[in-house]
Design a protein around this nucleic acid. Sequence first.
DNA 1: CAAATATACATAAGACATTTAGGTATAGCT
DNA 2: AGCTATACCTAAATGTCTTATGTATATTTG
Lengths: 110, 110
Amino acid sequence: MDSNKKFLNGTLNTIVLALLRENGKMYGYEICQLTKDKTNEKILLTEGAIYPTLHRLEKEGMITSSKEKVNGRIRKYYAINKSSLQEVDSQINLLSQFTAHLRTLLNLSA
Amino acid sequence: MDSNKKFLNGTLNTIVLALLRENGKMYGYEICQLTKDKTNEKILLTEGAIYPTLHRLEKEGMITSSKEKVNGRIRKYYAINKSSLQEVDSQINLLSQFTAHLRTLLNLSA
DNA sequence: CAAATATACATAAGACATTTAGGTATAGCT
DNA sequence: AGCTATACCTAAATGTCTTATGTATATTTG
């Protein structure tokens, strides 16, 4: 009841892909933090959601992981596969259209 | 894979409330049709989703139904309970904020 | 006028993403 | 030494939605 958690459903996949497209490569924890920062703590991705999502996207062949040791800890970076860039664009466009239609339905400007 | 069906998850409740708030009273089939028309057939509400949603909202005390016979067929109209108007506004605002943040994340203007 | 389509409601099984809750481990600060 | 931040992971439970059916009347069309 507190945040807009329930609205996230279905959009997480595309959020991840959009952030990866913009930033080249990112790791799970970083995706959570950046989302928190960019949305003023209004959209909070949980680790229980983000990691299975990343694993699924890799399994589907959309992204590829690579491990790097940074400051003694291992980070698992993910990047979009070049062959999937078009599909990623398409998915982001779909979500973009959806939010636009939603705002029309809700009678919101812009 | 064709439409943006998956994005709907979590927003249906609020869409229904927003349409009811704007139009005073509506029946299930009408909500589906209006949504289809307003979004250029991009957001399609299915009957398997809309009716359980209306039932749930009524059970929760957010809306109230009333049956009317129109053209020989019975229609079940729903309207927002006055005591819930504030809660409805609040929910619509939350969804509005969510879509705004989402558009920021996706690097979309407006 | 018979058949197909549109209108209008409803329910139930199944799919599926996310929440909630737990677990491991290292680095850095107090 | 203990707490917090970083960083990964998994699994059971939850809950919405899809898909598939079912019923029934009104209207359109061949």
